[in-house]
Design a protein around this nucleic acid. Structure first.
Lengths: 340, 340
DNA sequence: AATCAAAATGCTCATTCTGAGTATAACATA
DNA sequence: TATGTTATACTCAGAATGAGCATTTTGATT
């Protein structure tokens, strides 16, 4: 305890301890934005292509600038200037601080990345080849259970099971199996749609995503087999996984979906959007009961004729709920498996 | 879009844009630890005293060191070395990046603080005067509703109401009133114990905490009145508020309380701990029903005779629940106001 | 015009979960 | 032995959930 206090005092007084990351050390700070949108059936993420030859898909990211008053304001300003997207909902996601992320010049440096999650109304589909809206299941095909068990799941679980079996030592094997069980709920029994990051990290450790083989080239031959999902630059796929998991959790207790909806929408559109984000199907009648009981929406008085069936009432988000209910989210209990 | 892509590409290729925070700029990165523990009746936070003369209470914090592989490992190593506390549960809290936090030399700098929440079993009460376990309600007396409405609440709400009334313009006034309503639930009606940070920030903006007057000395005379709670160094009270809010939320859906419990405990001890953390009283019978139904604990076979009444069964945490239930937390619905 | 497919919308029903109690048991101490 | 204190068992009404069936209202097809 004493030591701690001493050190703290020394630091406060301007003293320095050895090996602290000093001004002038190899340190870069970047802000990284996971910008999400959604159509009724497709969850979207904004990506850019970087790196000349072997162009990799990446999340937009920019440097922290000195004149920004706070990190979040910095991010907002930066994104608005660059993409002309006005960010509505913005929340800090996580700060990634791995050492050894290689910067352009090849020296190992400490790269500190502060990642943010932003929700926007999707604007024009970004006509250039450089910045694009992508369906995020492109990167995580095993996360979309809307039409039943994803096709890749079998192969993916086989790969993971092999990895668990190959563990050095009994204890490690048990640990891996436990983690698999938790993240994949024994295949399907009780799929937890929030564990996006946990699942990605398992795949990474097991060498089943391209990023791992890139980061540890020695693994290239050791584990041939397939890799799953579209790779991204640096650790951007991990950041995206963090964002999706967070969003999937948040829609349950905060009305954040509405940030992704147009001003007026039908209840089915809302349901489809929630399903797109969470990757599971919901029971229609119960979903509406919930949304209406909670007072999340109100009538606009208009009808939508584009339903393909009986016209639907158009509703809008009731901003007042924010003042009424402590945690108004779109609770989602999955319906049964859908016929197909 | 095009601009964005260009910039990203330029950066990846080693190019630089103006005013980026460059190596060598005035930038410091610190890791800050909110280390929490609890006795049955008292929630605790580990603090140190820094700064010679006007010693302020502070959270332990240390520099990011280059040889740490990840931020979290860095924090663990650092805290273990300094406090001989082995951190069990550790989670990243938030990254605070305000400009203009004054460093020792008086220059305005960008201080990036990555804050972590750690839960430990309280060790010896830290005999030195320098590092101490403090009841955290010392800093947030308005957050403790275990014995009914906190005494300070009246004065505090009056201060806040004055601030709302003094808003420049109708719109701003409405906004302030809305925020007050949300954070304080109109005084008490539906107290939401998770909004610790929101409440602190309101008090800060209203000039009702000492930190605000320190940060904006000009306010000193403008708003004389009282200030609430014990102040802390820098923005440490804000960080602590973030931690408490996060913890209060988390105990509901993850079995994190058990990180704070001894190996064997009685159900009442567990309840008192949860109450200490959340600041509200719970209904005893329902609490036990929940904990037992969820399979969170199992018998040790022993009895505790220190109850002051009928002896109680000693139970222990069932680690297996982590593998069984998707979100095993100690759901807490407040009981009625307690007789006193 | 009659029929069909696709939604939207209305309503039911059994089950589980919650909130709030009452009642009883088992100890320490005055 | 009476009293205070805590543990533990059990009840009960009301709300919330999960799963369905039934009916209505369109456009598209026979």
């Amino acid at each position: 305890m004493q030591k701690l206090a001493d050190k703290a005092a020394a630091l406060a007084a301007g003293g320095r301890v050895p090996r602290e990351i000093e001004l002038g050390a190899a340190l870069a700070i970047r802000l990284c934005a996971v910008i999400l949108a959604a159509t009724a059936r497709e969850p979207r993420v904004l990506t850019v292509r970087i790196g000349g030859e072997e162009a990799a898909e990446a999340l937009p990211s920019g440097p922290l600038e000195i004149e920004h008053r706070t990190l979040e304001l910095g991010l907002r300003a930066w994104v608005e200037r660059q993409t002309s997207h006005i960010l509505g909902y913005v929340e800090q996601l996580y700060t990634f601080g791995d050492r050894d992320r290689l910067e352009g010049d090849g020296r190992p440096t400490r790269a500190l990345t502060v990642a943010y999650l932003a929700l926007v109304l999707e604007a024009r589909p970004a006509g250039t080849a450089e910045a694009n809206w992508q369906n995020w299941y492109r990167y995580f095909p095993w996360e979309d259970w809307r039409d039943g068990e994803p096709a890749v799941l079998g192969a993916l679980l086989r790969g993971l099971a092999d990895w668990a079996r190959a563990a050095p030592g009994e204890g490690e094997r048990r640990l891996r199996e436990e983690r698999l069980w938790l993240a994949f709920a024994a295949g399907a029994a009780a799929w937890n749609e929030e564990l996006v990051l946990e699942r990605y990290e398992l795949l990474y450790e097991a060498g089943l995503v391209a990023e791992r083989r890139r980061d540890l080239p020695s693994l290239g031959e050791a584990a041939p087999g397939p890799v799953f999902g579209q790779a991204m630059a640096a650790d951007h796929r991990r950041i995206l996984a963090t964002a999706i998991g967070r969003l999937r959790g948040k829609i349950k207790y905060r009305p954040v979906v509405f940030e992704l909806m147009p001003p007026a929408f039908t209840l089915l559109q809302l349901q489809r959007t929630v399903e797109a984000l969470s990757g599971v199907r919901l029971h229609k009648q119960n979903f509406r009961r919930l949304v209406e009981q909670q007072g999340l929406v109100e009538e606009t008085g208009e009808l939508s004729l584009d339903t393909g069936g009986r016209p639907a009432r158009l509703v809008r988000f009731r901003r007042e709920v924010l003042l009424e209910r402590p945690a108004p989210g779109v609770r989602l209990r999955a319906g049964r498996r859908v016929p197909a």
